[in-house]
Design a binder for these strands. Structure first.
Length: 559
RNA sequence: GGCUGGGUAGCUCAGUUGGCAGAGCAAGCGGCUCAUAAUCGCUAGGUCACAGGUUCGAGUCCUGUCCCAGCUACCA
């Protein structure tokens, strides 16, 4: 069916820990978690890294404005992320924070390597600085009668700042980047994002600054090198403040190799790097597909194998964001749809390869149609009929070739897997739900209740036919619940229990039998088991009871 | 401004090399009774953004126009 990799190393971008998380931020994490779980269940050693980005000047300023220590401020925000991710069933192998001590060491090591390789040099960075947004490009500011202003914050006076910064020689990597894109056509996906990045590279690359002279509250990773090239570390282990801080973007990207074990654990690093997949949003594609490979090459390391660029969640055409206030609180979302339901509707309702308009209404309709009506009811009617007509002993499926569902299954499964591995998670789920539809239609065609009456009437062969039909239905329930387990990890154990099967996977998807073996029609045909009484999996939601069609404004303040 | 996507049913979208406009959801009608008012079937719903052109034939190819989104260098 497919060739599984020998290991799978996947990351998300790290979230900016300045506020509580929105669903639009965790959407990417849900998708990556589903992919990580897929590989874990397939028996592929998997490492899934996600976390938080904490060294930004804005965060330091926000903490300062609240009169609190920056560390306390970010600890609080990170705790909110962890609570929300736990509610969504997110299972990273490491939750990395850029304030983690090992990450601080790795970022400094990367600076030293770039310096040793002649890729960084001292220069001057100057430009308009908006206290709310940082340095603004000349094309982003507006000239007015009262002076130059930032269009987003017209009341805040812009400052012309000059900083002595270290610069990274990105210009030296233009040719290598072009060659890398040519040699690895799948490096950036989807295709149109790759084209954008390629266009940017061909337009000529400028060097970028990787240090800041000063930061609010002295926040950030100490730049490990002084202007004269000497180490900025004092004998007591503290750092010379005059050396400045590492610019937050340079620091943030490096989390991916910290999380892979660089450089303290070479064996671990060799095992997990290069990452197989970075899952990121379209707004940060350039940093991941252009700056980041160059940074790695400068340090003598490999670029990640693939970067998947997803789109945004939109509410009525507008990007969901904390600053706009049109975002969903993941806790509310889980409260309404359940952890599994929330994961499913998020990944099914939004396309993973482009922007998607979402609404509470659409999520509710999707939940009712796909989960309550189609699949939940399919399992319910199957378990109910098998229990009622066969007394609870689990009927075995027929040979695939003798069963319409058994015949249809391989194509549905293969399409599901192909879409999943292509990161088209919404299409993967759609492919699987085509098969759920086939299951429901099969019930109508066979009408087991009619066969059951024939059995009662003593009709010849009716009992055998009833067992066969119900066996096929039970098998269809098993296959769909297992296939969709990476997306709805809590569902599979509940379905398996009702079907009288063991579920041997751990909470994070590790440890069970290879999923592809389990996804064969009739994989457990010989096993005896008892069905339980039917228990509804996804209670139907009343649209009226749900929030109105608008995305509720739950913002607590500016981002 | 330049470059790249897109505009198809009320909503979300699919439409391969040009060959009778499709799916899901929502709506209406009917069937069934195992099931969570569910499910199955049927119906309705379209100036394929607009105007030209090529062609026996255009949602698809070409030209122009309008609209939306993205990219066009350091907030993260």
């Amino acid at each position: 069916m497919l060739d599984l990799p020998e290991r799978f190393s996947i990351t998300t971008s790290i979230a900016y820990a300045n506020n509580k998380p929105g669903l639009h931020t965790l959407y990417e994490v849900i998708g990556a978690d589903a992919l990580a779980r897929w590989y874990r269940m397939c028996g592929v050693p998997t490492r899934f890294l996600t976390g938080t980005d904490e060294h930004s000047i804005n965060i330091a300023q926000a903490a300062l404005d609240e009169g609190r220590p920056t560390r306390e401020f970010v600890d609080e925000k990170v705790a909110l992320f962890k609570v929300a991710e736990a509610a969504l069933g997110i299972t990273p192998d490491r939750f990395i924070r850029t304030t983690d001590p090992d990450h601080v060491r790795v970022a400094q090591e990367m600076v030293r390597r770039a310096h040793a390789n002649g890729d960084i040099y001292l220069g001057t960075y100057e430009g308009w600085y908006c206290p709310n947004e940082g340095f603004r490009n000349v094309t982003d500011v507006v000239e007015t009668a009262s002076g130059t202003i930032c269009p987003n914050h017209p009341d805040v006076p812009l400052q012309w700042l000059t900083e002595r910064n270290w610069f990274f020689r990105l210009s030296a990597y233009q040719e290598r980047l072009e060659r890398h894109f040519a040699d690895h056509p799948d490096f950036v996906r989807p295709e149109h994002r790759r084209n954008e990045m390629l266009g940017f590279i061909r337009g000529g690359l400028e060097d970028f600054s990787i240090s800041r002279e000063r930061t609010p509250g002295d926040w950030g990773i100490p730049f490990p090198i002084r202007e004269d090239g000497s180490s900025s570390e004092f004998a007591d282990g503290t750092w010379d403040p005059a050396a400045g801080k590492i610019y937050v973007w340079y620091d943030a990207l490096i989390n991916y190799i910290t999380g892979a074990g660089f450089p303290d654990d070479p064996a671990m690093f060799a095992r997990w790097w290069p990452a197989d997949l970075h899952v990121i949003g379209k707004d940060i594609a350039r940093f991941h597909t252009i700056f980041w490979p160059a940074m790695l090459w400068s340090a003598g390391l490999e670029a990640p194998r693939k970067v998947w660029v997803h789109g945004w969640l939109l509410a009525q055409g507008e990007r969901m964001s904390k600053s706009r206030g049109n975002f969903l609180d993941p806790i509310d979302f889980v409260a309404a749809f359940g952890s599994d339901g929330a994961r499913y509707v998020a990944l099914r309702e939004a396309a993973f390869d482009r922007d998607s308009d979402v609404s509470w209404d659409a999520f509710t309709r999707r939940y009712n149609a796909d989960l309550a009506n189609d699949f939940g009811n399919f399992v319910n009617r199957t378990v109910s009929m098998a229990g009622r007509y066969l007394g609870g002993e689990r009927p075995a499926p027929r040979e695939a070739a003798e069963s319409p569902l058994g015949t249809a299954w391989p194509a549905a499964r293969d399409l599901f897997v192909a879409k999943l591995e292509a990161c088209l998670l919404h299409e993967a789920l759609a492919a699987l739900w085509e098969f759920v539809g086939a299951g429901n239609r099969f019930v109508e065609v066979e009408q087991p209740w009619v066969i059951a009456r024939a059995v009662k009437a003593g009709e010849n062969g009716a009992a055998e036919r009833l067992r066969a039909v119900l066996g096929d239905l039970v098998e269809a329930c098993r296959l769909v619940a297992l296939a969709v387990a990476p997306v709805m990890p809590g569902l599979a154990p509940r379905v398996m229990e009702q079907l009288g099967y063991a579920h041997e996977y751990a909470a994070d998807g590790n440890g069970g039998p290879p999923l592809l073996d389990e996804l064969r029609w009739g994989a457990h045909a010989g096993q005896v088991g008892m069905l339980t009484a039917p228990v509804p999996l996804f209670p139907r939601l009343e649209i009226e009871a749900a929030l109105p069609g608008e995305i509720p404004a739950t913002a607590t303040g500016p981002a």
